[in-house]
C-alpha cells in the first residue's frame, strides 16, 4: 500500500513532461496497471487525487487501464491467462508458471491543454 509513493513518482513524471513539452495542464492521465502487480487501483486513484494537488495534473482524471495476467506454463509450453499469482495453469492444473505479462505500472499517455 505504497500508492502514495507511486503517485508521487507519477506526478514527478508529469512535471518532467510539462517542462519538456510546455503544456499548461493535464486533463487526463492514462496509466497501465498489470493485474498481477503490487498496485491496488482504488488506492492508486485515491492517492493520485492527494498527490496531484497543486500540480499540473490537479483535478485531472486518472484513467487506469488494466493489463491482464499471462504466464508461460513450463509443462504445457504454452502462454496462458491467469487472474492472479498462484493460479494453476488452466490447461494442466500445474503451478510451473513463469509470469510474462501483468506486472506493468506505466504512464502511457497524457491528455493536455
Amino acid at each position: 500500500m505504497h500508492e502514495i509513493a507511486l503517485c508521487n513518482s507519477l506526478v514527478g513524471l508529469i512535471r518532467d513532461q510539462q517542462r519538456e513539452r510546455g503544456f499548461a495542464r493535464v486533463r487526463r492521465v492514462i496509466v497501465e496497471v498489470g493485474v498481477l502487480g503490487h498496485v491496488d487501483p482504488h488506492a492508486l486513484d485515491f492517492a493520485f487525487e492527494v498527490e496531484a494537488k497543486d500540480s499540473p495534473a490537479q483535478d485531472a482524471v486518472l484513467e487506469i487501464r488494466e493489463i491482464e495476467g499471462r504466464a508461460w506454463c513450463m509443462d504445457c509450453s504454452e502462454l496462458v491467462s491467469i487472474a492472479k499469482r498462484g493460479d494453476a495453469c488452466p490447461g494442466c492444473g500445474g503451478y510451473g508458471m513463469i509470469v510474462e505479462q501483468g506486472e506493468e505500472l506505466r504512464l502511457k499517455e497524457l491528455e493536455v491543454i
Partner: peptide, 17 residues
Amino acid sequence: AQRAHLVSVERDILSKN
C-alpha cells in the same frame, strides 16, 4: 474544440527508482 491533445509518454512510473 478544446485544444486538448494526447501525448504519448510510455514511462514506467518507478523509472526513477
